[in-house]
Nucleic acid binder design. Structure first.
Lengths: 354, 354
DNA sequence: CATTGATATGCTCTCAGTGAGCATAATTAT
DNA sequence: ATAATTATGCTCACTGAGAGCATATCAATG
């Protein structure tokens, strides 16, 4: 069994999704890059064209000689590239898809990428990399329902997915596609579907050719195999620009996975507090939760839930210089970790949508 | 930045945790590596001695030339070694710890291992590997609370952890250790702590030197660095046999992670049905859930929950040849997947333990 | 055939959590 | 002062879950 690999045909790299939330805007740390090394400045929004220099998540190779564990390796990379030192770090997923990296097509070892989620505060970036904070929902605009149903859904996603369903070869395949759409985006567009299903949604859009990376990868694959252009190219002309800002490699898939993981964790782990300053008002806390889940919450009930859970304790001071009545400042109660098995802030729409 | 690795110093392997539940007994597929010992009699716990041939999870190298994705590679390995073809597969975690593999100490590339969870039915194993089904709770005896608090907890774990806490160098370190114990195993031993925290518990036992792998790794590390024997070795004499049956490499850590993942998923995804035959009684369903969570559930309430959630529909037939009143047979309603965002069977003890 | 034992199934009562909304308090802007 | 704005307290209704009682339906046993 387990015959040994003659020569290691894959290399391990570490990729970080560094997240912060400031003023209700969740952001991720990215660096522009042309090729392997070059970086370009500037940011524009959701209209990048193929050939553009795509945004890249900070990453680096895993060097076993230097780092005892994967996580320590990642912490090192993040510190070096961003100056961040002691944030919350959690492994997300390991990606090893074919055609992930163009270099691989030239005979280099497959890049298996271990992705990590890093939660921190938005600080001026200091490290070696030309990193910048970008709004997460620029990359995943269909995930933000705080101002109602995102426009892209009716404008591009629903019709695009409908075409994709119709394009299925067999009736069985069509049914399967329809089911996947229903599961990921919901049947009616009344509310957000399961807010945690971010990865399903991105992968669906990818398969349906509605994000730029899909077209890019198909083109690349066609070129590599010397074959013809992918045949969907004609059908998806109108959305050729792709929905949301693209990223390099499979970085957007990783970002989608990270967002889903964060949302899921909110419900049963007090991870929000990693994103907040030590002292905060209950509304600030609520805004961060809303920013991450992409939904609005009932204010009074949110407060009640937090207080009942004894997640926070009053600092004794009050917010200064606000418009209305000053809000009391709270801090996270570390003790809850030892008191209760599962504590979180509760996700919206987790009950039956009836 | 991102300087390229001169030569890939790590290789990627795929490890499978193949789980099935038969007659209330959750089992995992393992292969004995060096020698062929007989299966240990049930439920003992602290029996294996160092030098034993350890159980190994099925694994194989990831070969990018052969497999398009990591998951496809794993499916191939599982099929080849066990004959299983189309089970439920889900990525668990990627492990890259130092001293994971002794070969690495001889200059071979670090083995980064991507672990997968595979759910299936217990079938006679057919593949190339000498695989066998082993009871999961033989490896993790402290996780099965169905017959009340496991004996190992009072006998070995509590005192062992207490010694570990006391052995902390500084008062601060002591407090941290105490907190970790409280979080993982709970403060009182009244009920099972968070049933999902299996990985925390294993890692705690590992760090405290209460599982055989910890002693083995320390010894190996000492030998490799030419150093002296680890200094905890005297303090942990009485538990030198280690709690639970050991496994090769970090396989037991992987198993613990798999169990936790399964338990967590039960609550919000209908994964149990992957482990059940197409038609089943509600009691069978309950028994599988109990087997996985390691707890007992209230029968009537469990039935009510399942029916209210419309997770199942009656087949129209009844169980034959049982002792009492025949139970109605049900099947999983696939439609729920498109109807509700999050459906599961509910975990016990997820509310405040007061 | 009646009885016992075992299992399946139905029902009630209670309580905690939560969704929704009304009401009041404390501040700043005009 | 008055309006606007934000924070905070409270009620009411509904749902799901925990616990237990009661009944139904079978096999085995005398």
């Amino acid at each position: 069994m387990a015959r040994k690999a003659e020569k290691p045909a894959s290399a391990v790299s570490l990729t970080a999704v560094v997240v912060a939330v400031t003023d209700e805007v969740p952001r991720v740390l990215v660096a522009r890059r042309m090729r392997h090394d070059l970086a370009t400045p500037a940011q524009q929004g959701a209209t990048a064209m193929p050939g553009d220099s795509p945004d890249t998540l900070p990453y680096g190779p895993f060097d076993p000689a230097r780092h005892r564990t994967l996580e320590l390796g990642l912490r090192d990379w993040v510190a070096e590239q961003t100056g961040l030192e002691l944030p919350y770090v959690e492994q997300l997923y390991t990606f090893g898809n074919q055609y992930r990296d163009p270099r691989e097509l030239m005979g280099e070892p497959r890049l298996v990428s271990v992705a990590y989620l890093v939660l921190t505060h938005e600080t001026p970036v200091s490290g070696s990399g030309e990193a910048h904070w970008h709004e997460i929902y620029n990359f995943l605009p269909w995930e933000d329902w705080r101002a109602g149903r995102p426009a892209v859904i009716d404008a591009l996603i629903r019709p695009g997915l409908a075409r994709w369903v119709d394009a299925a070869r067999s009736p069985a395949a069509k049914a399967r596609r329809r089911e996947r759409v229903a599961i990921s985006f919901g049947v009616d567009s009344a509310g957000p579907a399961d807010v945690v299903r971010t990865l399903d949604r991105y992968e669906l859009l990818y398969e349906a050719g509605l994000v730029l990376e899909a077209l890019r990868d198909r083109r690349q694959m066609a070129r590599a195999t010397g074959g013809k252009e992918p045949r969907q190219s004609r059908k998806t002309v109108e959305t050729a620009a792709g929905i949301g800002a693209p990223m390099a490699l499979d970085n957007r898939r990783i970002l989608a996975a990270a967002l889903g993981r964060m949302r899921g964790k909110l419900a049963y782990r007090p991870v929000v507090f990693e994103l907040l300053p030590p002292d905060f008002t209950l509304l600030q806390l609520q805004r961060v939760v809303e920013a991450l889940t992409g939904t609005r919450l009932h204010k009074q009930n949110f407060r009640r839930t937090i207080r009942n859970a004894e997640l926070v304790e009053p600092v004794g001071r009050f917010e200064t210089a606000a418009r209305g009545r000053p809000a009391e400042l709270f801090r996270f109660r570390r003790d809850v970790l030892t008191e209760r098995p599962a504590v979180g802030v509760g996700l919206p729409a987790m009950r039956a949508a009836e």
